[in-house]
Every structure is written in C-alpha cells, then in structure tokens.
Computed example of a mutant assay.
Amino acid sequence: MPYARFVQIGRVCLVNYGPYRGSLVVVVNVLDHNRVLAEGPTSKVPRQVLQLTRLSLTDLMVPIQLGARSSTLAAAYAKAGTDDAWAASSWGKKLASRSKRAQLTDFDRFKVMVARKTKASAINKQVKVLKRSAA
C-alpha cells in the first residue's frame, strides 16, 4: 500500500510538541520542506508557522484553498465533520482513553483494579467449567 499522508493544503495534523500539544490543526500553506502555516479552528490554536517535525499527519483532509481565511477554514472544517471523524478514528479513541485514564483519582484507579479482578475471576471460573465439561 503506497504512502498516502502527504503534506498538502487542508491536511489535518496533530501537534505533538509545544504548548498546543494534542491539538488538531489544518495546514493552510506550505512554506518550505520544513515548515507550514497552520491553524486550529476548533482547538483555538492561532494561525502560526509550525515545523513539520512537531506535527503528526493524519488521514483527514479539509477541502480548502491555499491561504484560506479563518472563517472559511472553520466553515469547511465543520462541514467536513473533522472532529467527529477524529473522535471515531482509532488514533483519536486511543488519545481520549489515555487522557481519561490520566485524570483518574486514586479511588477511581482502585475501582478499576477491583473490576479487573472481578472480571478475571469470572472468566477463570468459566474456563474451568468448560474444561470439566470437555473432559
């Protein structure tokens, strides 16, 4: 399968370094082979020059023209349903799960541990019953 995530106008990227880490931005202009002009319409990332080493390209695209205005970008972003598509992707789900898990309190972690033990115990009982009936 050929590589499909190219740096291009309208490409949605995830910022992986800096103060806006974890935010989605859209490439508005490609400045050179190292830098792009990007803006995050819903993540409140202002239009700025970002290095490509600080971005992770996603499969998502927004249909915009070169140097689109902020209002045009926001409208196209909403029309394309980018936030919903990101939330439905496995990458977005994994990041949401990590963030939710990082915000757990001590008691929440305890409840998760107890639930895992209960589930493992129930599975082990079922396995023993199946082994006995198969023998």
Score class of each variant (00 low, 15 high):
Lys79Glu: 15
Lys79Pro: 00
Lys79Ala: 13
Ala80His: 14
Gly81Cys: 05
Gly81Lys: 10
Gly81Leu: 06
Thr82Ser: 09
Asp83Gln: 08
Asp84Glu: 06
Asp84Arg: 07
Ala85Arg: 15
Ala85Leu: 15
Ala85Pro: 06
Ala85Ser: 05
Ala85Glu: 13
Trp86Gln: 05
Ala87Asn: 13
Ala87Gln: 09
Ala88Glu: 12
Ser89Ala: 03
Ser89Trp: 09
Ser90Lys: 15
Ser90His: 04
Trp91Ile: 00
Trp91Met: 15
Trp91Ala: 14
Gly92Ser: 01
Gly92Tyr: 08
Lys93Tyr: 02
Lys93Leu: 03
Lys93Ser: 01
Lys94Glu: 07
Leu95Tyr: 03
Leu95Thr: 01
Leu95Trp: 02
Leu95His: 00
Leu95Asn: 06
Leu95Phe: 05
Ala96Cys: 02
Ala96Ile: 01
Ser97Arg: 01
Ser97Met: 05
Ser97Leu: 03
Ser97Phe: 02
Arg98Phe: 05
Arg98Asn: 07
Arg98Cys: 07
Arg98Lys: 07
Arg98Ile: 02
Ser99Leu: 13
Lys100Ile: 04
Lys100Gln: 02
Arg101Thr: 10
Arg101Leu: 07
Arg101Pro: 00
Arg101Trp: 03
Arg101Glu: 08
Gln103Phe: 10
Gln103Trp: 11
Gln103Pro: 01
Gln103Glu: 08
Leu104Trp: 12
Thr105Asn: 04
Thr105Gln: 11
Thr105Cys: 04
Asp106Gln: 06
Asp106Trp: 10
Phe107Ala: 12
Phe107Asp: 13
Phe107Gln: 13
Phe107Pro: 00
Asp108Arg: 05
Asp108Gly: 06
Arg109Ser: 01
Arg109Asn: 10
Arg109Ala: 09
Arg109Met: 11
Phe110His: 09
Phe110Cys: 04
Phe110Ile: 13
Lys111Met: 04
Lys111Glu: 15
Lys111Asn: 12
Lys111Thr: 13
Val112Ser: 13
Val112His: 06
Val112Tyr: 10
Val112Pro: 03
Val112Leu: 09
Met113Ala: 08
Met113Leu: 10
Val114Arg: 14
Val114Trp: 11
Val114Met: 14
Ala115Tyr: 02
Ala115Arg: 08
Arg116His: 12
Arg116Glu: 09
Lys117Met: 04
Thr118Ser: 13
Thr118Lys: 07
Lys119Pro: 01
Lys119Asn: 11
Ala120Val: 02
Ala120Gln: 07
Ser121Phe: 14
Ser121Cys: 08
Ala122Gln: 15
Ile123Gly: 11
Ile123Glu: 12
Lys125Pro: 04
Lys125Cys: 01
